[in-house]
């Protein structure tokens, strides 16, 4: 389908331009991260400048909630019907930690791991969801964190690579 071929290319170009234009100011804008107080849901390590626990940036639920979460509505191939996902856009998370790598390695509780290139860190791109249909997600329910792409609004996100990157039961990110 032409739409499915042309649009991603255009979108990609637009995003690349945006990333390049915004990368410098973003780093300057980053605030110091507060140390986590509750259960740590996510640990970011690797090529980052903002840390709160040692060389890592650790996030608990409260910290995540303070980072202007967004909500997207989309269907997924793993669930039944339209789902509401609430979380922090990946790009914002990466800015928050001052990520300077070109990709990140995301690993799940079950040790599933996947690489997400920096080209995916875009506005209207994937989010690190911590609520599904307004409720926290348990491990049985693919929680506590799930990287969700807006599959429905962007056909480019309807490929197997993207599905593979949609990691659930996420708990670690290493920026490389």
């Amino acid at each position: 389908m032409p739409r499915s071929l042309l649009q991603p290319t255009l979108a990609l170009l637009v995003r690349l331009t945006l990333v390049m234009a915004l990368s410098l100011p973003l780093r300057a804008m980053a605030q110091d991260l507060a140390p986590p107080e509750g259960e740590v849901l996510l640990t970011v390590s690797g090529e980052i400048t903002q840390t709160n626990v040692g060389a890592t940036a650790q996030f608990d639920r409260r910290l995540l909630e303070s980072m202007q979460p967004v909500t997207i509505a989309t269907t997924t191939i793993w669930t039944d019907g339209v789902q509401q996902f609430t979380g922090i856009p990946l790009i914002r998370l990466m800015r928050a930690v001052g990520a300077s790598g070109h990709r990140l390695k995301a690993t799940a509780i079950n040790d599933y791991a996947v690489d997400i290139p920096s080209s995916d860190w875009v506005e209207n791109g994937p989010i690190v969801a911590y609520l599904r249909n307004g409720a926290p997600m348990s491990v049985r329910d693919k929680g506590p964190l799930w990287i969700v792409y807006p599959y429905d609004t962007n056909p480019a996100y309807q490929g197997e690579v993207i599905y593979a990157r949609s990691i659930w039961q996420l708990d670690r990110i290493i920026v490389e």
Partner: peptide, 19 residues
Amino acid sequence: RRRFDIFFSRMATLEKGEV
């Protein structure tokens, strides 16, 4: 418990997933 949850989650996917 964690392993159970992971398996449970997997089964939920197999049962409810669109594919």
